[in-house]
């Protein structure tokens, strides 16, 4: 195991785990709480990266985070507009927005398929001297995730947050409480979009580059993280579920890191991701089946034993 996971590998798995955890948290809000499958996640992630990269190139790496989040809010708003004002099914709305975002992202990147941030400052290069050369990336990423988690925890406890949670649980009841579900869906998707874009922006600054295909498959990965977390930590309270999302994201990155250490070609990573997602989603079901089968076998053998004694 020690040969599989050296400290630098573990640290970088955690760094990526924390950054991608923001997308898992975004899906926690849109998918687990609002019950909306937001397929615009891929495009929104790249949008955050592209917008953040451009602002960082202009020399404002910290401002980049907020501009990227604003871009994510816009993406979330368009998605919710299609759903609540134009009556488009949520999955279709996501696909439409995702498709549109591809062109938007290219335009943001100045119609080139990648941008380099090697020559400019990033929030990581700015903080390099504060926390030591090995740990600064991890500390910054973790700190941002903690701040976002605290915000989310606070937000979901407010009246607006409660309304959003109820919207995914029982929309009729929300309407009966004189709240417009269209409004709560809009707010929820905007916040979720902001988190996805923030994650994209951080990845851009972390990797010092931005690629038009960066977000491809992001929704699958985030979903995997979310479900790994729910399987391990459970989904009883909001806090537990958020910790689960972050933990799930880190575990996912560890699995990928191990796969890479085992000389898995990078081309195969998407397949590995898909397999992990399938296993993570199937695990709770298989666990139930296993318990059922065990009881069935026990009952069968008991019946057999009973007959013998007769």
């Amino acid at each position: 195991m020690s040969s599989l996971l050296s400290l630098p590998v573990a640290i970088s798995a955690f760094e990526l785990g924390f950054i991608y955890a923001l997308v898992a948290l975004a899906l926690f809000l849109s998918y687990s709480i609002l019950n909306i499958a937001d397929l615009s996640t891929d495009g929104c992630f790249t949008l955050g990266c592209a917008v953040g990269a451009q602002v960082a190139i202009m020399g404002h790496p910290v401002l980049a985070l907020f501009v990227a989040m604003a871009a994510g809010v816009c993406s979330g708003y368009v998605m919710s507009f299609l759903q609540t004002k134009l009556g488009v099914e949520s999955i279709l709305a996501g696909i439409i927005v995702n498709t549109g975002l591809y062109t938007v992202n290219l335009a943001v990147m100045g119609f080139s398929s990648n941008l380099s941030l090697f020559k400019c400052e990033t929030i990581y290069s700015l903080t390099k001297d504060w926390f030591g050369p090995d740990w600064y990336k991890l500390v910054v990423s973790a700190a941002i995730v903690v701040v976002v988690c605290m915000f989310l925890k606070w937000f979901l406890g407010t009246r607006l947050g409660l309304s959003i949670r109820a919207t995914g649980d029982n929309e009729d009841m929300v309407r009966a409480s004189s709240i417009n579900p269209g409004f709560t869906i809009t707010v929820g998707l905007c916040v979720s979009g902001a988190m996805t874009a923030l994650s994209g922006c951080l990845i851009g600054q972390y990797q010092k580059s931005c690629d038009i295909n960066l977000g491809t498959g992001m929704v699958t990965i985030a979903l995997a993280s979310l479900i790994i977390g729910e399987t391990l930590v459970g989904k009883r309270t909001v806090t537990r579920r958020m910790i689960g999302a972050v933990l799930g994201s880190c575990i996912y990155r560890f699995v990928i890191a191990i796969a890479l250490r085992l000389h898995m070609p990078t081309e195969c990573l998407k397949l590995v991701s898909a397999v992990i997602v399938a296993i993570a989603i199937a695990a709770p079901y298989l666990k139930d089946r296993a318990v059922f089968q065990k009881r069935k076998l026990a009952a069968a053998s008991a019946a057999k034993g009973g007959r013998k004694s007769c």
């Binding site: 109820a166 009729d172 009841m173």
Partner: peptide, 11 residues
């Protein structure tokens, strides 16, 4: 129909 099942009584 009238209540949100996954939220507490208080909420």
């Amino acid at each position: 129909k009238g209540t949100a099942p996954h939220m507490t009584i208080e909420e």
